[in-house]
């Protein structure tokens, strides 16, 4: 703690010290160029949010489809799920992004399918797949925490597997799944920064481009970090609200 404080004060002191170390003018809203720079950076919000939300939704669906067979009593149904989770979880995000963006179109072409994967969809696919291994594990632990007696009771009143999941297990599991799932969403928002390396015009990419033209990395990256901070705080706030709402629902 002491070290961190020392470091923080050092950084601050560096700012007040010799002239030219800090140049806030680059993002000073009072000047025309500063204002232009800010709007240029903020324009990345849309892409980051869009990318994260679509990837998260796909990840949640794929994760569920992986998790459900992964809980089968039949080991041959369980096996593909286990392999998927272990395999996907082991691949770092950046190499996977490169592989999807540069490699996947080649693979598809050799199979006779010609598609162009643009930066946006390349990033969406990568984030979604990479994240789905983790959401699958979240679903699994959440669903398995619902006592077996619940599914047995559902069987004895004639519900099918799908009905049991839909009306009995998932409504109870969702309260336990939601907090870690929200955590995972925050993770996606932050990992979406990697999309900048394949040219996706999101927050980080824009900051990089501005740094190249303005030569003010400190100020621009500081603002970039604050942009992510605000985004994540808003999500956290929303999740807390949702949890409280569901918690209140349960204790009623």
């Amino acid at each position: 703690m002491k070290n961190i404080l020392a470091l923080l004060s050092l950084t601050a002191l560096a700012g007040c010290g010799s002239a030219g170390n800090w140049g806030w003018y680059v993002i000073d809203p009072r000047t025309q160029s500063g204002w232009n720079n800010i709007t240029f950076l903020f324009d990345g919000f849309g892409a980051t949010i869009q990318l994260s939300v679509i990837a998260a939704v796909i990840s949640m669906i794929v994760g569920l489809m992986v998790a459900l067979p992964g809980m089968s009593t039949n080991r041959w149904i369980r096996l593909p799920s286990r392999i998927y989770v272990e395999f996907v979880r082991a691949i770092p995000l950046l190499p996977m992004l490169f592989w999807v963006f540069y490699g996947l179109p080649v693979v598809l072409k050799s199979m006779g399918i010609t598609v162009r994967i643009d930066a946006f969809w390349g990033a969406v696919i990568t984030l979604a797949i990479s994240d789905s291994a983790f959401t699958a594990e979240i679903y699994r632990s959440g669903i398995q925490s619902i006592a077996r007696g619940q599914t047995e009771a559902a069987k004895t009143i004639g519900l099918t597997y799908t009905q049991t999941m839909r009306y009995v297990v998932l409504p109870q599991a969702i309260r336990r799944i939601l907090p870690p799932l929200a955590n995972q969403f925050i993770y996606i928002v932050k990992m979406s920064a990697f999309a900048s390396v394949i040219g996706m015009q999101e927050l980080t990419r824009r900051a990089n481009e501005l740094v190249v033209t303005e030569y003010r990395p400190l100020e621009i990256y500081t603002l970039l970090i604050l942009e992510y901070l605000v985004l994540v705080l808003i999500i956290s706030f929303f999740v807390r609200w949702l949890e409280r709402k569901m918690g209140a629902d349960e204790s009623r």
């Binding site: 006592a147 007696g149 619940q150 047995e152 009771a153 559902a154 004895t156 009143i157 004639g158 519900l159 099918t160 009905q163 009306y167 009995v168 409504p171 109870q172 349960e250």
Partner: peptide, 28 residues
């Protein structure tokens, strides 16, 4: 065949009435 369990196994997220109507509505 109906079954009654040692641990009751009612569905805690539903009301008593919903516990009773779930089977007849969805399965029947």
């Amino acid at each position: 065949v109906g079954m009654v369990f040692q641990q009751f196994n009612l569905f805690p997220h539903l009301t008593i009435l919903q516990n009773l109507t779930l089977g007849p509505m969805k399965a029947r």
